[in-house]
Amino acid sequence: MSVIKNPGTTAVGGLALGIAATVVLASPAVAQTAPAALATGTTVGPAGHTFSAAAQGDVVLNAGPVTVTCARSSTVPTNGKPNKVPAQPGNSSSVGPIVLDINPPSFESCTTNAPGLKAAITTNADHGTWQLALRDGAPARLIIPAQGFTLKTSGLLSCNVTAAPGGAANAEAAWSNGTPSSLGFTGANIPVEIEGGFFCPTSVNTATITAQYKVTDTTDPAGAITVSGTPKR
């Protein structure tokens, strides 16, 4: 009886699988089924490193008819509360995002789209912690604690804009690995409550943020904070 062997190679889920198909004369061929691709978790690294995030260009906040543009914004590690990647094994998860505590970001040199209308933004963590949730293959999320920041206008209008008025809220962003890595917000929604006089847009309950942040590894400035997949075993 003659036997013909026909080795071949196929790629499934990025893994090269060698498949040897054996055909026996006078017998039907038997196909082998390749295993399903392995699911992935998330690892943020390097473990234990601190980081800063600084806006590259303007940060633009829109709340109804009012547009506020801030020339500078950043969050940096401090001795009391560093922006820090968790130590191993807390920097890896097989099922969910890695959540990093961060210091409340600053927003400085803010102007508005209306002549004579001034704006200032104050951030705080009185009702919770600012956090960054990172997950491989999914949008990043900036977690803003309840009443995490207040935008006040003065001059032509005196209005107060409170972010996340009813509880912690998320603003979605795109994470890109690099040296340094980046975090980009493009019209990300933030729930708000606006209070003030007759001309304040009190019916508006959503603001948006557009900004691009550079994320720098402050433990090793030549390195980078990265988000990667972790194969399940």
Score class of each variant (00 low, 15 high):
1 M>H: 14
2 S>Q: 13
3 V>C: 11
4 I>D: 15
5 K>T: 10
7 P>T: 06
12 V>R: 06
12 V>P: 00
12 V>S: 07
13 G>C: 12
15 L>Q: 08
17 L>C: 07
19 I>V: 10
22 T>L: 09
29 A>R: 00
30 V>E: 07
32 Q>C: 12
33 T>S: 15
35 P>V: 09
38 L>S: 06
50 T>G: 01
55 A>S: 12
62 N>R: 09
63 A>G: 11
64 G>V: 03
68 V>Q: 08
68 V>A: 11
68 V>C: 11
69 T>V: 14
69 T>R: 11
71 A>H: 14
71 A>D: 09
72 R>I: 13
75 T>P: 04
76 V>D: 10
80 G>K: 15
82 P>A: 15
84 K>H: 09
88 Q>L: 12
91 N>V: 13
93 S>D: 11
94 S>M: 12
98 I>T: 02
104 P>C: 02
106 S>T: 14
110 C>Q: 13
111 T>D: 10
115 P>T: 07
119 A>M: 14
122 T>Q: 14
123 T>W: 02
123 T>L: 06
124 N>Y: 05
129 T>H: 03
129 T>S: 07
130 W>H: 01
130 W>K: 03
135 R>S: 08
138 A>P: 03
140 A>F: 07
140 A>E: 09
141 R>K: 14
146 A>F: 04
155 G>E: 07
158 S>Q: 10
160 N>T: 15
161 V>K: 05
164 A>R: 06
165 P>H: 06
166 G>P: 06
168 A>W: 00
170 N>T: 13
171 A>E: 06
177 N>I: 07
177 N>P: 03
179 T>M: 03
179 T>H: 07
180 P>C: 00
182 S>M: 04
183 L>K: 00
185 F>H: 09
187 G>E: 02
189 N>Y: 05
192 V>W: 00
192 V>N: 04
192 V>A: 04
200 C>W: 01
200 C>I: 06
201 P>H: 05
202 T>F: 01
206 T>Y: 01
207 A>P: 13
216 T>Y: 03
217 D>M: 03
222 A>W: 00
222 A>G: 05
222 A>F: 04
225 I>G: 06
